[in-house]
Every structure is written in C-alpha cells, then in structure tokens.
C-alpha cells in the first residue's frame, strides 16, 4: 500500500484510499533463471493487478509444483503453493466457498496437462470464475528436463534421450473439446503487450479463463520457440473486433486471421497446429453457467440452524 494518509484524515480508514502501484504487488524478488519466461508472465500479471486495483487481501493465487508454480510466492496477495498437479481442486475450494475473492491459478505443463489432467478437464467444465495461466515451456523444468505432454516429438530429454516418441498434446484443442469451456487464449512470454492484453481479457471474462502462455525455458528448451520469436512472420495472430487487441502488434504480425471468438468450430480449427504458432483468443462465451453461481448458499443464523437440526431430530425421534 503506497499512499500514507495525512493525519487529519485518520478517521478514514486507509483502505478507502488505498492505491496500488505495480510494485506494490511484488512480495519478494522472483528467483527464476535469468531469461526465464515466467518473469514476463509475472510482470504482466502485476500490471493487470495494478490496472484493476485488486486488493491484495482479497486476491488469491493458487499453484501446483514446478518452477512456474513458485509464482504465488512473488505476488503480494494471499497465495497457496499446493502440490503437483492439484492447484485446481484447491482453487475450486476457495472460489466455491468465497466467490467474492479474485482467484488466479498458475500451472506448468506437467502440472496441468500430465499429473493434473483430471482436474483440468473437470475445472474447465465447472467454469468457475478464475483466471488460469498455463506456463507451457514444453518441459519439466523444476525436475530438470524430463519430457512433458507438450514436448515436441523427437525432442531429446533426460527421460527420452532418443527423442520424445509421440506428437505433443495440444492444450488448446483439449480445452476447447470440453463441454462448458468458455475462454481459451494463447499468448507468448516474449510479446508483453499481447500477454498483458490477453490476461486483461481473461480477467474480464466471467468464467474459467484458460490462457496458455508459451514460455521460454533458457535451460532446457531454449530453442523450441526460437523460430516463433525470431520470425514473427511465421506466426499468426487471431484478430477480431471482439478479440484481443494489443496496440502496436500490427507491425509485428503480418499474418492475421480474422476469427470471431464466438465461433467455437473456428476456434477449434485454428487451435490445431500447422507448424506455426497462433496467438490470440480462440473462444469466448460469457453466457455459460459458472458452477459457483449454481451453488450459491443462503445465510442462516446459528439459532435457525439449531431449530432446523431439532426438526431433523424429530424425524428420528423414538
């Protein structure tokens, strides 16, 4: 919190005047390798928090285990650094019981698409209002270069030294294939403007906003995105008046696809990879049911509860 109140305003609580700068959202210095794409994601996120002026005490970041899952330690908010693959159940418990909190989830590709797959599929369908970042470096970073479900075929790792055997899993088409999927976007850590705009759109969306962030790992997959980084011409940007709009991208991306994010079939089509990276909003539908809304609870006083339990006992009375 950065604004100190003049003493004559003591009667007004700090909170009413609290204003947060980007740096106010930093809890401590992030400890990732230099050149790690996670820094970009953290910076874009902090910018978003400042833009939205989210109150740190009413914001929760939940993660699993992995390099990327260290994320909550670096954000000044409540955080839950959980266990590998299980960020989403924890986040579900938080959002379901405290829907007023802003919930963000950060996962790695192993975390979300391998060990946590069951939760991922079901969380998409629950469509709870949370912003979900998949930091996809195509590798297990923390445990030092094992194949992940998104590792490119043929890519050599410590567990598949002669190259990964199978084509990678596509987190975008997988997500778009699940009933009740409501927001699917892809961005890249090396295009800060696009990443920020994507997170902004994800945050604004009511529902499970799934953002796959192509994330460079300088240690273990330094080259998987090199072509995409060096030759933006080989990338394609999904654009639309209802899509994600980031200033200054016209020059960078010559190849643009006009895609209405309402169009699910189109989104699925463009999410299929054809040897090029596509960034943008594949699908968005703000009309789909959110699980927490269907589970709203009434408020009942203790005295009322006691009365109800006693009525319950009457059913069992001897």
């Amino acid at each position: 919190m950065s604004v100190s109140m003049p003493s004559f305003l003591n009667c007004i609580s700090d909170d009413d005047f609290a204003h947060y700068e980007v740096d106010d959202y930093q809890k401590c210095v992030a400890k990732w390798c230099s050149g790690c794409g996670d820094f970009g994601a953290l910076n874009a996120t902090k910018r978003l928090l400042a833009k939205e002026q989210l109150q740190p005490e009413n914001t929760v970041f939940v993660s699993g285990i992995g390099c990327s899952s260290r994320f909550p330690h670096y954000v000044n908010s409540y955080g839950f650094h959980g266990i590998h693959g299980r960020a989403l159940p924890i986040a579900t418990g938080v959002k379901l019981t405290r829907p007023e909190l802003d919930v963000f989830v950060v996962m790695g590709d192993g975390d979300c698409c391998s060990i946590g797959t069951a939760h991922w599929i079901h969380a998409i369908r629950y469509n709870m209002d949370m912003t979900v970042l998949l930091l996809d470096n195509n590798i297990y970073g923390l445990t030092k270069k094992q194949t992940s479900p998104t590792t490119p075929i043929g890519f050599s790792t410590n567990t598949m030294p002669r190259g990964s055997y199978l084509p990678p899993l596509n987190p975008l088409t997988a997500t778009l294939g699940v009933s009740n999927a409501s927001f699917v976007a892809q961005t890249a850590d090396w295009i800060p403007a696009h990443m920020y705009a994507t997170l902004q759109a994800a945050y604004e969306h009511k529902g499970f906003s799934f953002v796959r962030i192509l994330q460079r790992c300088p240690k273990f997959t330094p080259d998987v995105f090199t072509d995409a980084v060096k030759n933006p011409d080989n990338n394609e940007l999904l654009v639309h008046e209802n899509g994600i709009d980031a200033p200054g991208l016209e020059k960078l991306f010559k190849n643009r696809i006009i895609h209405d994010p309402k169009d699910l079939d189109g989104g699925r089509h463009y999410a299929e990879v054809e040897n090029r990276v596509r960034l943008g909003l594949f699908y968005r539908n703000g009309e789909l049911p959110c699980y927490e809304d269907t589970r709203e609870v009434v408020s009942v006083t203790a005295a009322e509860k006691i009365q109800k339990i006693n009525t319950e006992f009457d059913r069992y009375a001897v």
Binding site: G82, L88, P89, A91, T92, G93, V94, T97, H119, H122
Partner: peptide, 19 residues
C-alpha cells in the same frame, strides 16, 4: 461438492478450509 475423485475432494476441502 461431489468432486471428480478423492484426490480432488481432499484438495477442494483444503481450499475451503484455507478460505
């Protein structure tokens, strides 16, 4: 909350407790 499996059930309960 009927979770997708027992692992999730435990996680959701922990999330609720945390909340």
């Amino acid at each position: 909350h009927q979770a997708e499996d027992e692992i999730a059930a435990a996680g959701v309960a922990i999330g609720a407790s945390y909340a």
